[in-house]
Design a protein around this nucleic acid. Structure first.
Length: 415
RNA sequence: GUGGCCAUAGUUCAGUUGGUUAGAACGCCAGGUUGUGGCCCUGGAGGUCGUGGGUUCAAAUCCCACUGGUCACCCCA
């Protein structure tokens, strides 16, 4: 009998957790600089919340959600993304009444039941942010700057930023009809997936990865050429702000993204250092979503980024980040009284915040020294009958090998 | 959901046309120094060869099924 992790889930082992913490602290640091506060919502919610916000017809809702009935027959779902729950919390707790603009970030596990592959897991981790209450294009840009700044601080530079505008409720319907008319002309030649989308979500057909679909739709009208005045001005502002920040980006008129709730700005950050699943982060504006979920009309914009994929890029770029802690002092005990003394002394040092380690296995001096070496302990003190009697010992610098006399009552470490 | 590839010590892998007690490297443990690590040397522990079935005198090796992993498609973080 052997228990294993569920398909598509992974243990983050002791050897890797320091790197995770390093990345997470970079995320938190940048978020704080931009004055975003953390929000922690439950890992699961009522199924309807996701169906309503993400869209019944999206891949996420139609085939990827971890949905099950709990013991009271209520349908619950492990969150597949972070925005829906954040807005739910915003509405439920009347955050909009406390201040006109709410800026929050989150970091935590998400769940989607897909076939795992490189860069895709069933439980994966995202960090993201949402700015709720303002329609300024500055915030749209802030959502791109946040992940880009985090990547920059981690030393990642090989990414590309693609942006688009998917319009709003005023301009999208007319464009949608225009596009559908064009698509129907080549309907029979389209791929099966695209044929289904012609009626349900025609914009997505333009984002098809199918070669034939690409050719067929090559000359078709794009949303960003049919924006209403408001959306056009907004999109232009986003671009001029990006220009002013000297950020390189590409306008991709076919970019749509897989969540139905976007209005106006949509964007995606990809990395050439990744494999087939190359999206590092994505986001956009969702001015209608709050009302859709039963809240007061509140504009909003956000982004989400994958932690595993960020870690994959770091690994690919061979950024050697050593963030793990090592013991300052390792006590080698020769006999039982010395071992007990070492245990008590290390306890005392530990309470002062100094990482101290001892041998718990009754091992030989040689083994204890090897252990201290393996742990990369900075100093070693060998304690025996002699040392306890004289209250002095030799402090060995493990890097240089040199030994200096120290008092066992007042151990001090040279810097 | 569909498809390709893979499955042998803790890890990375070898295993000759099926043929005796399945190997290496690294790692781990111990010793070489009756109280001092790294390098080196010696020894040791560790494998129901993913699981089940079949072919055969004989299967890690050939066949089938299953399970798991991995990569790709769709889509996304």
């Amino acid at each position: 009998m052997k228990f294993r992790t569920i398909k598509g889930t992974k243990d983050i082992l002791p050897g890797e957790s320091a790197l995770w913490q390093y990345v997470e602290s970079a995320v938190r640091r940048v978020m704080q600089s931009f004055n975003y506060q953390e929000i922690r919502t439950p890992a699961f919610e009522q199924t309807g919340l996701f169906a309503r916000s993400i869209g019944e017809l999206t891949d996420i809702v139609s085939k990827e959600m971890y949905t099950f009935l709990d013991r009271s027959e209520e349908s619950v779902t492990l969150r597949p993304e972070g925005t829906a729950a954040t807005l739910r919390a915003f509405i439920q707790n009347n955050l909009g009444e406390q201040s006109p603009l709410t800026k929050v970030y989150y970091i935590g596990p998400m769940f989607r039941q897909e076939r795992p592959q490189a860069g895709r897991l069933r439980q994966f981790h995202q960090f993201g942010a949402e700015a709720l209450g303002a329609s300024s294009p500055q915030l749209d840009v802030e959502m791109m700057v946040l992940p880009l700044e985090i990547y920059k601080q981690l030393g990642i530079d090989r990414f590309s930023l693609k942006i688009n505008s998917v319009g709003c409720e005023k301009c999208r319907p007319a464009y949608k009809q225009l596009l559908q008319t064009e698509l129907r002309k080549v309907f029979t030649q389209l791929s099966h997936d695209s044929q289904v989308r012609v009626e349900q979500n025609p914009l997505r057909v333009l984002d098809s990865k199918d070669e034939k679909d690409r050719e067929l739709t090559a000359g078709m009208p794009l949303m960003n050429n049919h924006l209403c005045d408001e959306c056009a001005v907004h999109f232009a502002s986003v671009q001029s702000l990006l220009d002013a920040l000297e950020l390189t980006y590409e306008v991709d008129g076919r970019l749509v993204r897989g969540l139905d709730y976007y209005t106006k700005t949509a964007f995606e950050i990809t990395s050439t250092a990744l494999g087939s699943q190359d999206a590092l982060a994505g986001g956009g504006r969702y001015d209608l979503l709050m009302e859709e979920l039963g809240g007061k009309q509140t504009p909003g914009v956000g982004f989400a980024a994958g932690l595993e994929r960020l870690l994959m890029v770091l690994a690919k770029l061979e950024k050697n980040i050593t963030a793990s802690s090592v013991p300052v002092i390792y006590f080698v005990g020769l006999d039982e009284p010395s071992r007990i003394w070492a245990f008590l002394k290390s306890n005392e040092l530990r309470r002062q915040g100094i990482c101290a380690e001892v041998d718990y296995l009754g091992r030989s001096v040689k083994s204890q020294m090897r252990e201290a070496n393996r742990m990369q302990a900075r100093f070693v003190i060998v304690v025996g009958e002699q040392e306890l009697k004289t209250k002095t010992a030799r402090l060995k610098n493990m890097q240089t090998g040199e030994e200096t006399a120290v008092s066992l009552d007042h151990i001090t470490f040279p810097s």
